[in-house]
């Protein structure tokens, strides 16, 4: 009996080693393969094609055969989605953490969890249906484009923001609130003057993670206005290019080895972007952890 038990435990240890080795193997294989394949294309032409870099950066000359328009498209998407999602998400998080009663909070949490679970292609379909409805009713000229995609990405990022805000506020020491009320502050004053500044880092971490989520999504924008060739994003309602879609498009449709190398180059650029956001988010959260050390800071998704 004892021996059999020990056997099971060695099996458990052996298997855990196997699983633990699997993760770095996969990561190294992926990043290594990406770097090796992206290497031939790396350089200014990857971004700007045959357009001079300075002229492209200042917007004086259009860029062809380069991924600069896709980079700008992705950055515009991130910016717009943040503009929509951050105020809404942080406000909702604050409401759930500080204002809502127990029952309200449970109901809203269910809605937020549900929103977090909705597949991004379904959110894209929602955006597409929204445009169809607008066209059939009071805005016959409504069209898929940058703003609609940003709206869909905001919907995807929203649950991350809400949960990050809420969890950060809930991990703040109760003494902070007591002190605030003790000074005769109203709830809003406590929230705006004490709790939000104290939780700034945690919320910022959540914001950055949500932004990374918006930057990488492909399925939602696939249905809401991204195209393969559009040049620089021109207007809120115009079609645009974006990095994740560009990669998807080239992976399926490359005509020449150079185009395939560009796909890998774009993938490396996107990975660097999301990787940077990831590191920034970690820095924010670890500082928060240090500030309120001794407290359990929630595990971030």
């Amino acid at each position: 009996m004892v021996k059999r038990g020990q056997g099971a435990e060695s099996a458990l240890i052996g298997f855990s080693w196997l699983a633990a080795l699997f993760v770095p193997t996969v990561l190294c294989a992926m990043v290594g393969f990406l770097v090796v394949r992206a290497w031939p294309s790396w350089g200014a032409p990857l971004f700007f094609g045959d357009t001079p870099a300075l002229a492209a950066l200042t917007g004086r000359a259009p860029v062809f055969d380069g991924i600069w328009p896709a980079c700008v498209g992705t950055l515009s998407l991130i910016g717009l989605a943040s503009l929509i999602a951050i105020p809404l998400g942080v406000a909702t998080g604050v409401f759930l953490a500080e204002y809502a009663g127990r029952r309200t909070r449970m109901a809203f949490s269910l809605a937020v969890d549900l929103l977090a679970g909705v597949p991004s292609i379904v959110v894209g379909l929602f955006g597409f249906a929204l445009i169809l409805l607008l066209r059939r009713t009071f805005a016959p000229d409504a069209n898929t484009g940058l703003l609609l995609s940003a709206l869909c990405l905001a919907v995807l990022a929203l649950p991350y923001l809400i949960n990050a805000t809420r969890l950060t506020l809930e991990t703040l020491p109760a003494g902070l609130r007591l002190a605030g009320f003790g000074l005769g502050l109203t709830r809003w004053q406590v929230v705006s003057r004490l709790l939000l500044p104290a939780s700034l880092r945690g919320v910022s971490g959540g914001v950055v993670l949500a932004v990374a989520r918006a930057a990488e999504d492909t399925a939602a924008i696939l249905l809401t206005g991204v195209v393969a060739n559009a040049g620089m994003p021109g207007s809120l309602t115009g079609k645009y290019e974006a990095l994740p879609f560009h990669i998807y498009y080239l992976a399926a449709e490359y005509q020449t080895p150079a185009e395939l190398a560009q796909a890998f180059g774009s993938a490396l650029v996107l990975l660097c972007l999301t990787g940077t956001l990831f590191v920034v988010a970690r820095v924010f959260q670890r500082r928060l952890h240090r500030t309120w050390s001794g407290m359990e800071v929630a595990a971030w998704r």
Binding site: A230, G231, G234
Partner: peptide, 24 residues
């Protein structure tokens, strides 16, 4: 697409005021 892309490229290079998007 190859035809549309090339035409779009030439037109947009000659006249940056014009935006031509090519989707699939």
């Amino acid at each position: 697409i190859p035809v549309m892309k090339e035409a779009a490229k030439r037109i947009m290079q000659a006249n940056p005021e014009i935006r031509i998007t090519v989707g699939a």
